[in-house]
Design a protein around this nucleic acid. Structure first.
Lengths: 241, 241
DNA sequence: CGCCTCTTTGATAAAAGTCAATCAGGGTGG
DNA sequence: CCACCCTGATTGACTTTTATCAAAGAGGCG
């Protein structure tokens, strides 16, 4: 985990290509300039390493700049539940705001880089900038919605619907990032997908194979191509957020 | 839905018996006094009525003063997922902060009363009160944790563990309120419990019956007594938050 | 008292998990 | 450069869990 101070203007939020997805989402050009004050540092995390782990002091929230990560809970028995896969432009660590130490961990699925927003900086600087307060509330509210949506997926959908929803969700988030929504590489294993979706890795694998057999997708290992988006959406029900 | 302005000092946060559970949790005596400014109104909702519904403008967050409510999502196909049961002292509507209109609804399980904290008031008053900003961040962070915990329950636990966890969770929250943790009345139907836990009402009913047969609980309709808390905890795994 | 809703219980079916045996790819060291 | 090994993925056979369908019972309220 390597810390890198942000000094060049080209590295700031106001100049970032992710600025209409990440922390600055929905903010005016001028307001984004204020955000630059908050983000003074980046951190590099190599594949498999943790950004923060259970019991670590909550110091900051993080915007994923590049790479891919997962966030997960772990109970006393060691049982793990992945609560999210994080793509560039998405925020990590908002669940820490409720405590002084982390109850979850964030792990890099591949070599990644995050921008750091220190909590103490938020407290110090933002009283004079109500727009940033609203922004944090909005982002946290979105995180609650995401999690509720996940509860709905786990509570109401059958395995094939969960897997279809998962593929469509990844696809649409990649599209937002400007990547192809049709063809992409999964950054996580079948086991991680299964854990996330409340299924076993075998069930996930079987459904991928079935979708391929039915010409809904092409899949070879982690290389996915969506061949029939409409049919997948049909299968997913409606909610493919 | 009846609005009631708060005028008497005895109705304010600083005098409320729920003050160490509700919005003021963890705040100093002086800081709670500041909260009084925010809470100018209460609303009464009778059983079965909604506090806010899908598409309603997000105007406020609410602290449940008395009664019991549920919050739920509803997808385009009409499929419902209950995301939480709300007891007195708990906060409703934090998921609205991510949007301008509600994507969830809050329904009264029995005649209830909530205290209203208007979002515009938060924006107006709080810039000068950083402690309240922190408080809202903390509360929203707790809400994210709650929801993640629910994801874990749905993703990793088997039906008997989910039901045991549910009973222990309700029991411990009632204990926090000063009620008996041993004996209580469920305010929701078997169907609502099943929906919440991602199970059918029959499965919930069968497990209640089985727990009763094994002398872990006494249950008659909605009247529950926990007879063997340790055994239930054992059954639940560990996480009984 | 009777109706209506909620709950319980049983029989059966469907979904998903478990266990186990390959199979494929990627990386490493000879 | 190639063979080998190790991890991750696929597929099959079988079991367990949970849902579905159906019927009967209990309580509450007009």
């Amino acid at each position: 985990m390597k810390r890198i101070p942000i000094t060049r203007d080209s590295d700031r939020c106001s100049a970032c290509i992710l600025s209409d997805i990440c922390l600055p989402i929905g903010m005016s050009r001028q307001d984004v300039a204020l955000l630059d004050e908050f983000v003074q540092e980046r951190v590099r995390i190599s594949k498999g390493k943790v950004l923060f782990g259970l019991g670590d002091t909550v110091e900051a929230i993080y915007g994923l700049r590049s790479g891919a990560m997962k966030t997960q809970l772990q109970d006393a028995g060691g049982q793990v539940q992945i609560t999210g896969f994080v793509l560039p432009g998405e925020i990590i660590g908002m669940d820490g705001m409720g405590n002084t130490t982390h109850v979850s961990q964030a792990v890099a699925l591949e070599d990644s880089e995050v921008c750091v927003v220190r909590v103490e900086d938020i407290d110090q600087i933002s009283p004079s900038l109500p727009v940033l307060q609203q922004q944090f509330r909005r982002l946290m509210g979105m995180e609650i919605n995401r999690s509720h949506q996940m509860v709905m997926t786990l509570g109401t959908l059958r395995s094939e619907q969960r897997v279809a929803t998962f593929l469509l969700n990844i696809s649409s988030r990649l599209a937002t990032l400007g990547y192809s929504s049709r063809n992409f590489i999964l950054r996580m294993s079948r086991e991680e997908i299964g854990n996330y979706l409340g299924l076993t890795l075998e069930t996930v694998s079987r459904l991928f194979s079935r979708f391929a057999r039915e010409n809904l997708i092409y899949i070879k290992q982690r290389d996915v191509t969506i061949l029939d988006k409409e049919a997948l959406q049909e299968l997913a029900g409606v909610s493919c957020d």
